[in-house]
């Protein structure tokens, strides 16, 4: 039990974030922020007003260089397949 918030299971954290801007960390060094419209038990997500940030690590002779390039793009509406999701963080409710 968590006295500070009404969370009994991890999905409650997602349910409380509906219609809010969330941060999502994805496989393949990708991060997105967007407004969460829907989700399901697989963590498939529907997001709108999305900005995707892709970290491009320079690899020279199989060794990752220190410099990391970042590519960004925006999408109006996005379906994210759940198996690519690593972490979802709602806006802080403190």
């Amino acid at each position: 039990m968590d006295p500070s918030s009404g969370i009994q299971e991890p999905f409650d954290l997602i349910r409380l974030s509906l219609s809010e801007r969330v941060f999502v960390k994805l496989r393949g060094d990708r991060e997105i922020t967007g407004i969460l419209h829907a989700y399901d038990g697989h963590m498939n997500l529907i997001l709108s007003d999305v900005e995707e940030t892709i970290m491009l690590v320079d690899v020279v002779d199989g060794v990752a260089e220190g410099e990391v390039k970042v590519a960004k793009r925006k999408m109006e509406m996005l379906f994210v397949r759940g198996d690519g999701v690593i972490l979802v963080s709602p806006p802080s409710r403190t």
Binding site: P10, M43, S92
Partner: peptide
């Protein structure tokens, strides 16, 4: 840093 985080 995250105030709250859901990890799949």
């Amino acid at each position: 840093r995250y105030g709250d985080a859901f990890i799949r």
